[in-house]
């Protein structure tokens, strides 16, 4: 079965797009074909894949129109390096799309409906969601089989994550989705060795302090190994490349691979 993964967070700049493109790259190395969907009006996926800003009629917006008949506007990512990663890009036009969908019949289910009517051949679809909960999150969730959450271990991000999880379960049940999307795991990102981050990840000085791991264990949500903050990851993105191409020797690649393996195994 095709896996459809929403990469979500409830705060900006925590590494969603970075995670999305690196997972796409590692999945393709595992022999999977991947379609990346840029659901963010900021169009960061375009930049991170080294592509040019598309015209509005070649973005996700056209897929979410009632007259869409299956001609997905797909662009290949890193075609000189790998095969099998295609992108359906977002952009500023999506801010209008979201407003339009409010009045559309089954607006929240529109992406899910289109993917059902005009299925893509890819093994994995990855939806790169915007930074805070909005309409595009609901549309992506309705189309997803799984979600991966990512945060920086800052208190404000942790607090926002709590709200995202609450939203996820309530929305999931309200939309009566089948199959019910599950949270595949949480990826702590941009870990810096300082007190607040250590506390939140459970390596702080107070052993009694409740950590994210404790909470996630209680909620039954898997936590992947944390990815340390480092310039190479940001530089790779700015150069429009996944870390695996930009710096194949970096340790974080092993974590991306691990998550990619989890995705390809998960049923």
């Amino acid at each position: 079965m095709q896996k459809r993964i929403s990469v979500m967070s409830n705060s900006g700049g925590v590494g969603k797009t970075t995670l999305a493109i690196n997972l796409a790259y590692q999945l393709s190395r595992l022999g999977k074909t991947v379609a990346l969907f840029g659901c963010d009006p900021n169009g960061s996926l375009t930049l991170f894949c080294g592509l040019d800003d598309p015209p509005d009629d070649q973005t996700l917006d056209v897929v979410l129109r009632p007259d869409f008949k299956g001609a997905y506007p797909l662009f290949s990512a890193w075609p000189d390096r790998i095969k099998g990663v295609d992108c359906c890009l977002g952009g500023l036009v999506l801010s209008k799309t979201a407003i339009r969908l409010v009045n559309e019949t089954r607006g929240e289910n529109l992406l899910a409906d289109k993917l059902e009517d005009y299925p893509l051949p890819h093994d994995v679809l990855i939806f790169d969601c915007p930074g805070t909960i909005e309409q595009m999150h609901t549309i992506a969730l309705a189309a997803s089989t799984h979600a991966i959450l990512t945060i920086k271990p800052e208190d404000k991000d942790v607090d926002a994550l709590a709200k995202l999880i609450e939203w996820f379960y309530e929305k999931r049940d309200a939309l009566r989705l089948k199959p019910t999307p599950e949270i595949l795991g949480l990826v702590p990102n941009g870990f810096k060795d300082r007190a607040m981050h250590r506390d939140n990840l459970g390596t702080g000085s107070d052993p009694k302090r409740v950590s994210l791991y404790d909470i996630m264990e209680h909620l039954g949500i898997n936590v992947f190994p944390d990815i340390k903050d480092q310039a190479h990851i940001a530089n790779a993105g700015a150069n429009g490349l996944p870390l695996g191409i930009f710096r194949p020797g970096e340790g974080a690649n092993a974590i991306y691979t691990q998550i990619a393996e989890t995705i390809s195994k998960e049923n």
Binding site: D155, V158, K163, F168, E170, V210, S211, L219
Partner: peptide, 17 residues
């Protein structure tokens, strides 16, 4: 803020689900 407190509504949502 304590994490348990932060996550109380999320926990309730998960349990309800």
């Amino acid at each position: 803020r304590d994490l348990n407190q932060m996550f109380a509504p999320a926990t309730a949502a998960v349990e309800k689900s």
